[in-house]
Structure formats: structure tokens, C-alpha cells
Nucleic acid binder design. Structure first.
Lengths: 107, 107
DNA sequence: TCGCTATATTGCAATATTACGATATACTTA
DNA sequence: TAAGTATATCGTAATATTGCAATATAGCGA
């Protein structure tokens, strides 16, 4: 008990749910929104922008990177992060499929 | 420590992340996919379909309902669940906004 | 009413997540 | 090389999530 029973679900389902899970935290949504509106990517700006400690932000960035939602490229002493639109499109495609397949006589 | 610091984020961000979080579990994705492909809605079919105990499925259904992702209508002794396309569109809109606002010179 | 079926709730053990201080790593510049 | 800046990792306490047995609730037909 206590553990998610990932073994019993398909890889596709597990991949999708991991991707959604990565979006499922306010700090990570805030990071994504900041990445969206900034001219330049970022780095330590997030630490100034968000009311969270640096290790906490670093941890959330890591999770977003592991999920493939953001990419980071080293630029001297700092790291420039940006959104990975391909991953975002995967979720988009899933949500779109829910809409098109829907049976209109249901409920 | 240990608690998500929701207070420091806007309501919009918290709402969005809660919605994503509800999608962030393989059992809930499986329920959503099943709801998508079934002619009729469901009820106890999920218990037969998924390798999880009835209370566990009931709990996941509750979370999906709380998030507004599914709706249930009582039909005699059973309950007919279906997807709420409006909520799904909210996520869709967010993901779409990420794509359109993106700065192409970044990273 | 009694038993049956469908679903929800409770309680709890196992595990995962969150946040952060302390510390490590690594590049840069004086 | 030493000091400074940027970021990552470790360790850990607090809290949340997951899964399920046991049990409760509720409609239905005999």
C-alpha cells in the first residue's frame, strides 16, 4: 500500500500521467508562466520572482526538466531555461482527443 | 515544511495546478480514457476493467469529480459518469497560450 | 421487510512530495 | 589563486497521497 500501482497500467498511460503531474504544482505553473512571458529565458530571476528558497526552485526546475517540459542550456555561469513545445503538444493532443471522441448523448 | 505553499500563489495558478494534478495519476487517466471510449457512461464497469479495488476507484472518481473533470448523474442504484468538456477546455486554453506566446529566439 | 447490488466513507499503513538549511560544484573575474 | 556568483545536491522534518479492508449508505425487487 501507499505506492501508485504503475505496473498495472500501460506505458502510454503512465507517461501521460507523469506529464500532467509535473504541471500539478503551483510553483511549477508559476515557473512555466514566467518562462512564457520573459523575453530572455531565466536562471536566478526565478529566485527573485517567486517567494521560495533557491533549493526549492532548483528542485522544481529539475522535475520540469525530467518531465521534458523545459530545456536548459548552459550559458557561462548561469543556465537558460525554456519551454519544450513538443512535450506540451503531447498533452494538447490528449486533451483534444477527449473532446472529439465524446459521445454527445452521454449524461 | 512539507506543505505546498499555495498561499503565495494567485488563485488562477492554484486552480490550474489542481486541475493538472487531478490528471496526474495513471488510474485517473485510465478512468478518463475508459469514459472516452465507452458508448454508455459507466459505474461498476470500472471496477471490472481496472485492477484496483472498489474503494480505490471510488476515491479516484471523487477526486475527478471534485476537480470538475467528470460529472455523475444518479440513475437508479448506479451512477452514470461522463467527462466535463468545459473543464478540459480550460487546460487546453492554458497549453495553447504557452505555444502562441513563445519567443522563438529563446534557447 | 429482507437480501442484493452499487457506491461511498472511514481508518490506517506504506510511500511520496514539499520545503529548506547546509553544503557542494563550477564558472568568472580580480 | 581567492573571492564571488549561479546552481545543484543532500539530509530531513512536515505533510500529502495511495490503496485497501471493513463498514456504511441507499435504491431495488421478492
Amino acid at each position: 500500500m501507499g505506492t501508485t500501482k504503475s505496473e498495472v497500467f500501460s506505458e502510454e498511460i503512465n507517461d501521460l500521467s507523469s506529464l500532467f503531474k509535473a504541471f500539478g504544482h503551483p510553483a511549477r505553473i508559476a515557473i512555466i508562466q514566467f518562462l512564457r512571458t520573459q523575453e530572455k529565458c531565466i536562471c536566478t530571476d526565478l529566485v527573485k520572482e517567486l517567494p521560495l528558497a533557491q533549493p526549492t526552485i532548483s528542485q522544481h526546475l529539475k522535475e520540469l526538466k525530467n518531465a521534458g517540459i523545459i530545456q536548459g542550456s548552459v550559458s557561462g555561469t548561469s543556465i537558460c531555461y525554456c519551454l519544450n513545445l513538443e512535450k506540451i503538444s503531447e498533452l494538447d493532443a490528449f486533451l483534444a482527443s477527449l473532446k472529439y471522441d465524446q459521445n454527445p448523448t452521454c449524461c
